[in-house]
Design a protein around this nucleic acid. Structure first.
Lengths: 366, 366
DNA sequence: CACGTTCCCGTTATCGTTAACGAAAGTATG
DNA sequence: CATACTTTCGTTAACGATAACGGGAACGTG
C-alpha cells in the first residue's frame, strides 16, 4: 500500500510561484513596466497601470524579498530614537541591544541603522536629536516618545514625509504609528498587587513607594500604582489590606533612610512593599541593613543591582518588561513593513514576566 | 561645528564585503573552483584546495545567504518528529505551530518540512515513523525523543548519514545533537515549590499529585517532583511543610474523586496542591464542586482547560514551557546551521514562565 | 518642416551564488 | 600510438528583482 501523506507535507512555494516575468507575460507588457507600476517609479499610462494591478491581484503575486534585497543597491535607513543609557547597566541599554541583535540577523538585507540618543533630563537635547533624525531622512524610525509635546512635533514632521515609525516603551494613542511595542503598566501593577496579596497575611499594610524625578516614565509609574490599587478595589480587599503611598525625593539621603526605617519599625503591620520602578534595589539595600524580617518586596526590571538583591532573597518578585525584546520587535515591525511588505500588528503588548530567584537564570534576554 | 557621530552609525556591510569573485581573483582560480572547495562538490586538487581555504580565512569571507538562497535550486528538507496531538487543544499541537510559524517566515529560502507524527501510546508507530523519516532522507531533523531506546537507534541512523538533528522537549545527553531545546524540569518544580511556599502558611501540608500513564513525559514528572521536594530540603523547611505524594491511576474514576475529596476534608492542614502535569484542570474541576476554600494550586501548561480554571481562580499558578517557542527555536537552530552556516547553542533552556490570571492575556505564544 | 520636449515603455546589466556543461590535461589500456 | 577514461578546472546561464539607459511615438513651437 502506497502512503501518500499529502496532508503532512508542506510544499514550499519556491517551486511554483509567480514572478514578475509571469505578470509581464499575462499583461502583455515588459517587466520594466511591472516594476514601474509596483514601485510608482517613472511614468505609466493609467490604462496599463490598471491592467497590471488587476493581474497582480489575480495571480496573487508576492514579491521575492530575497531577490529584491539582492538587487537593491541603496541601503534602507532606519533611525532609532531612544534615551541615552546613563551607565552600562542602565535600562535603556537594553532596547538598543535588541535592535542591534535584529540588525545583526538581517545584515544581508542592507539595512542601515543610526541611533539618535538624547539626554533624558534635557528636553533641549531631545529636540536637537529629533532635528538630526529628520535631517538624516530615514525610511523608518523607532521612537521612544518620552516628552509628549516634543514627540508630537517630531512625528508630525515624519508624517509629512510619510516616514513610518513605531513607538517603543511609551505610547501616544491615536497617532499614525505603525505599531506600539511596550508593556501595559496598569496591568503590571495589577499583577504585582496579586502577588503581594497572595504572599502576605490578611489585615496588614502595604507600602507603595514612588521615586520622584523619574522623568522618563512618569506615566508608567502612575499607571502602575493605579493598577496596583485597582486590584484591591476590584477584589473587595480594601478593608483587609491597607495601602500607603510614599513618594521619596532624594534616595541617597540619610534622612530618607532614617525615616523609612523608623516607619517600618513603628508600623509592624507593614508586610509588603511595592516599588513602582527599577529603583527597588534601594529599598532592598536599606532592608539588608535593618533586617527584612517578613516583608515581601516587588519591583521592576532586571538590572544587575536588582538581580543581586533578588538572589539574596531581599527582593521577592521582579516584573520584567523584556526591554531587549521590545527593541528587537520594533525593528522587525519596520522590517516587515519596509522589506517584507506585510502588515504588522498595531498594538504589541509585551508579556508581563514574573521573575523570582528561582527562574531568573533561565530568563533569556532575547 | 560639524558633528560626525561615526560611533553612532553602524554601517551595514552590504557595501563592502568579500564576494566569491574576490577570492577567486586573489587565489588566481575560477569561481567554480571556489564553489567546489566550499561545498565539497566535484574534484579539486589538494594544492588549490588549501590555497583557497587560506584566502577564504584571510579575507574572512562570509557567504551571502540571500544570494545563495536565490540561486539554490533544490529545496532543503527538514523532518519534524513529534507525537501526534490527540486533540486540537493538546500540548503537542503547540511545538508544531512554532515550527510552522518559523517555516512561514523563511518561506523564500526554499525549505521543505515534513511532519512525522507518532502515536504516543504506541511504540511501534514510533519505530515506523522513524523509518519513514530516514527514508525521506532529510538534511536536518527536529526530534522529540520520547522513547529512549528507540530514539537512540534513530539518531544512530541519522549520525551515519551525517544528518544534523536537534532535540526538543526531552533530552538525551551525550549524543551529537546540534542542540537541545526544552525546559529544566527540576528547576520548574523548584520554582513551583517556592510559589506555594510563599502563598501558604507555616505548618501546613502540600499534596504532590502525579497522574500515571503519562508515558510521554515520565522523566519530566519525576524531575519536577524532585525539584519540588529539593526546595524544601535546601531551605530547611521539611519540618515546617509536610509533603505528601499521590499517584492517581484513572482520573475519570469516581473512586478517585471520592477519595481525594475525603482526604481534603479530613486533613484540614492541606493548603497547597502541586500537580506535576497539565492534568491540573482535573483537580481544579474537582475542587470547583467541593469548594476550594484556601487551597493554592500550581500546575503546568497553558492548555485551554487550565486557562479556564486559572481565570476562575481555581488554579493559582501555571508554569508555561513555551512549547510554541520550542518548535520555533528548533527550526531556527537547523536554519542557522544549514542555511546561515553559523554555530548554534548546544543547550537552549526555555524560560520558566509563571502565569497567573493577571498576566495570562499578555502571554504571546510566539 | 525641423527641432525639442514629454510621455510611455522595452531591453538589459547587475546583485552574489549555484551548478551544469564541457574543455584541457594527464593517465591507463589495448 | 590511438583510444578511452579520469582528474581538474573555467565558463556561463540561471535564480527574481532592480534600475539605468535609451528608443519611439506624440505633441508643441519656431
Amino acid at each position: 500500500m502506497q502512503r501518500i501523506n499529502k496532508k503532512e507535507k508542506i510544499i514550499n512555494e519556491k517551486n511554483h510561484h509567480i514572478r514578475i516575468k509571469d505578470i509581464a507575460e499575462q499583461a502583455g507588457v515588459s517587466i520594466g513596466t511591472i516594476d514601474r507600476v509596483l514601485h510608482g517609479r517613472g511614468e505609466v499610462s493609467e490604462e496599463t497601470r490598471e491592467k497590471v494591478l488587476l493581474i497582480v491581484k489575480k495571480l496573487n503575486y508576492k514579491p521575492n524579498i530575497i531577490a529584491s534585497a539582492l538587487a537593491t543597491r541603496e541601503n534602507i535607513r532606519i533611525a532609532v530614537f531612544l534615551p541615552k543609557a546613563i551607565s552600562d547597566e542602565a535600562y535603556w541599554k537594553k532596547p538598543r541591544l535588541g535592535v542591534e541583535k535584529a540588525m545583526e540577523e538581517t545584515r544581508q538585507y542592507g539595512i542601515e541603522i543610526k541611533f539618535f540618543q538624547f539626554d533624558i533630563f534635557d528636553k533641549k537635547s531631545f529636540i536637537q536629536e529629533a532635528e538630526e533624525l529628520v535631517k538624516w531622512n530615514p525610511q523608518g524610525a523607532i521612537i521612544a516618545p518620552i516628552y509628549y509635546r516634543e514627540s508630537v512635533s517630531l512625528i508630525a514632521n515624519l508624517q509629512e514625509r510619510s516616514i513610518p515609525y513605531v513607538f517603543i516603551d511609551s505610547n501616544i494613542p491615536n497617532q499614525s504609528q505603525l505599531s506600539y511595542i511596550g508593556q501595559d503598566s496598569f496591568q503590571s501593577g495589577y499583577l504585582s498587587a496579586r502577588l503581594l496579596d497572595l504572599c502576605i497575611p490578611e489585615r496588614t499594610t502595604i507600602l507603595i513607594i514612588n521615586f520622584a524625578q523619574e522623568v522618563d516614565n512618569l506615566n508608567h509609574l502612575r499607571q502602575r500604582e493605579e493598577g496596583f490599587r485597582s486590584y484591591f478595589k476590584n477584589n473587595d480587599l480594601t478593608e483587609q489590606k491597607k495601602l500607603v503611598s510614599l513618594t521619596l525625593e532624594d534616595v541617597e539621603d540619610d534622612h530618607f533612610m532614617a525615616n523609612l526605617t523608623l516607619l517600618l519599625k513603628e508600623d509592624q503591620a507593614i508586610r509588603g512593599i511595592f516599588v513602582t520602578s527599577s529603583k527597588v534595589y534601594r529599598i532592598a539595600r536599606l532592608l539588608e541593613k535593618t533586617g527584612k524580617s517578613k516583608i515581601r518586596i516587588v519591583g521592576y526590571d532586571l538590572i544587575p543591582k536588582n538581580i543581586t538583591y533578588l538572589k539574596k532573597d531581599l527582593i521577592d518578585f521582579l516584573i520584567n518588561q523584556r526591554p531587549e525584546e521590545q527593541g528587537y520587535k520594533a525593528f522587525y515591525a519596520l522590517f516587515d513593513h519596509l522589506i517584507n511588505r506585510k502588515s504588522v500588528e498595531g498594538m504589541n503588548l509585551t508579556p508581563i514576566d514574573i521573575i523570582t530567584k528561582e527562574n531568573i537564570d533561565y530568563q533569556k534576554s532575547i
